[in-house]
Design a protein around this nucleic acid. Structure first.
Lengths: 223, 223
DNA sequence: CCGTGTGAATAAATTCACAGCA
DNA sequence: TGCTGTGAATTTATTCACACGG
């Protein structure tokens, strides 16, 4: 039997599907903006509109975290925000390392969106001698040969992989061995990982190709 | 009866779900690599492994495009590649404009993965006077005030939006009015678009937050 | 009235399992 | 024997519809 039952302070956190988690992140973003603007409560329709989903889906999503809404009123922002933050793991102080200081890696190192939403980038690594030692977004690029040292010294808890596909698997192996359990990979290849390590893959070109298909096939032909 | 039946040269292209399209893009990427290495045929198990899915899912995916595999043999790469390219809209010469030359925009402008997979970046725009006129990835940053002109002159058919959330909706409106029908947005807000215009959203921070949740809650219990 | 919570219905995606061809 | 094509079963996700609280 599974031994892990992290009883929560208020409600037992059930299993939350990934599709819901991605939406929760958007809900939280909107709530933070409205909170700063002085808004107190928000309805499912309003929040769903901002996140690009439907009220029914939103209510289902939030209900997985417990009943925090009030009929006739909506959701109180100051109540909801901490619940979302807890669910999204924002009570941990994450420390992100970027592996691969090419174009994409350099950009993500300087991308304010990561830090602003709880994931500060504290290290950048690469294998190219020409890059090692240079400054990227205020960080000195370190040698990927020293990956294990860097993980330990900079206390990395997350890695963003922006390397060519062929380099991905060995690096994932080393990251996993070094204790990094959360990896976001931009390489368009599958990687295998030991139990307890979680890899998510984002492929930007694939997203463009979905758009290309929609535009090319039966989509919205004006005439 | 459905009125839309775009008869194709070989097989009628049915409706292909987005989840499948994203995988098709990965299949194509692997096939191109193997093709360059001289491989002639590939089995569903092999290709599925490279793309991080299962053989059954892969066969279902490819079958939406027609029966191109041979029992006992597998799929012939030279047969499959053109089918995937056609389905993914790679017969059109796409021209991508990056709207927003911040960290993320600059990186994507120089990201080789876009060009390599059929989506060359031909224009970069921004609103900041300090950026306009500067060089980004070999392109001169143009004034977003001239968006409509740039779309026409550079014949943009796709836009990548890397601007703050608050700026997204007005820019989407202008892009749509200027004739751009495919938009990839990195802004963490929903936007509304007229019919015939397609927006896909990628939120990188959300992906990290999914990882954070998995790591924080019940995630990889081996038992 | 609004607007949430939620069971039921629906739709979508994945996996199974196996017949049949090379 | 190996491997595809595919109907059926299953799992997952979304939408509907409405009882009930403020």
């Amino acid at each position: 039997m599974s031994a892990v039952e992290p009883l929560d302070t208020a409600a037992a956190t059930q299993h939350v599907p990934d599709a819901t988690l991605r939406r929760l992140s958007l809900y939280l973003h909107s709530l933070n903006e409205w909170s700063a603007a002085g808004v107190l409560t928000v309805s499912s329709a309003r929040l769903a509109g901002a996140a690009g989903t439907t009220p029914a889906t939103l209510r289902k999503d939030l209900n997985l975290l417990g009943s925090h809404g009030r009929p006739g009123i909506g959701y109180e922002i100051t109540t909801l925000v901490p619940v979302l933050e807890r669910t999204l793991g924002l009570t941990t102080a994450w420390r992100v390392g970027i592996i691969g200081a090419g174009h994409l890696g350099q950009a993500l190192a300087g991308y304010a969106g990561f830090t602003r939403r709880g994931f500060p980038v504290v290290a950048v690594l690469d294998a190219a001698p020409a890059l090692i030692g240079t400054d990227v977004a205020g960080l000195v690029v370190q040698d990927v040969a020293d990956l294990e040292e860097v993980v330990a010294r900079d206390e990395l808890t997350m890695a963003v992989l922006t390397v060519p596909g062929a380099a991905a698997q060995p690096l994932v192996d080393r990251l996993a061995a070094a204790g990094v359990r959360s990896i976001l990979s931009f390489a368009p290849v599958a990687v295998t990982v030991p139990d307890g390590v979680d890899v998510r893959r984002v492929d930007l070109a694939s997203e463009l190709q979905v758009l290309a298909h929609h535009a090319g096939a039966a989509s919205g032909p004006p005439g």
